[in-house]
Amino acid sequence: MREFSYARARDVDAAVSLVADNPGARYLGGGTNLVDLMKLGIERPELLVDVTGLPLDEVVDDGGRLRIGALVRNSDLAAHPLVRERYPVLSQAVLNGASGQLRNVATTGGNLVQRTRCGYFTDPTMPCNKRMPGSGCPAIEGEHHNLAILGASDHCVATHPSDLAVALSALDARVGVQDLAGPHELPLEDLYRPVGDRPDLELTVRDGALLTGVSLPPLPAGTRTGYRKVRERASYAFAIGAVAAVLVVADGMVSDVRIALGAVASHPWRARIAERELRGGPATAEAFEAAAVAELDAARPLRDNAYKVPLTRDLVVAVLTELAR
């Protein structure tokens, strides 16, 4: 591991100016992804600014919106009464990720900005356009059975492993960020850059920006939510397919629907095409399948991950059918 200096941030402003003024600086939250990558020599910060002492660790109702501090630990988020009562999909998604030990340490903000990655990214002996721009992507011809089918490029096919972010995407979360220009908010979807030819750049926010929290709009009465994850063992594994959905059905018709897909792209994939197909139409398994097929029309699977197309389609149908019941 490269040597680094360490500082505890006194307040958000001090943290932001410390990191923004030093290109080699990184924020340290729970560290479950960052410290792991530092051990591998993939992340090489000169300075870690520990933000875990900042007062960003509460979940509060703000006039109907739920505000979740960036430092709320995954386990506290999943267990929080307001989350379980209002957004069960969020609690379910968090509990389907990682292990009890990791959830106790990992933070909400850190989960969203963890690195999109694959086995080549985490192996410093291999080329990787994300780790070493221009060095190539061995995954495209190599081991890619659990990599992206949507939104990938010839430069990178890695996936974002978060479960939490998939649920937040379906819940229309907004992300609070602070940089040298001050605090601002953006939709979660806008936090992530398309892969394109710069897979090393994952986020849209400027260097030194600190993710301060997430907020969720209220769900109308009668909304049902659900999360379903498929993985290669029963627990403690990344998804090979995941769906978070929010559904409102009135008189057999879909009055509102929001669907986010996990394990298919470099970021949570909001299924806008499927949503448009479904809104105002019948809430039937046939309609759900047609919508999923329309969304996945853009899928460009590789040699060994074409199974994800029907898997994701079937997951969408299963989750929506369950919610419409």
Binding site: Y6, G31, T32, V35, D50, N104, V105
Partner: peptide
């Protein structure tokens, strides 16, 4: 795995300074 303030955590991913 150890307990930090009573909560279980992986000590390999925690920096001692933190």
């Amino acid at each position: 795995t150890v307990l930090i303030d009573g909560r279980r955590a992986n000590s390999c991913l925690l920096l001692a300074v933190a």
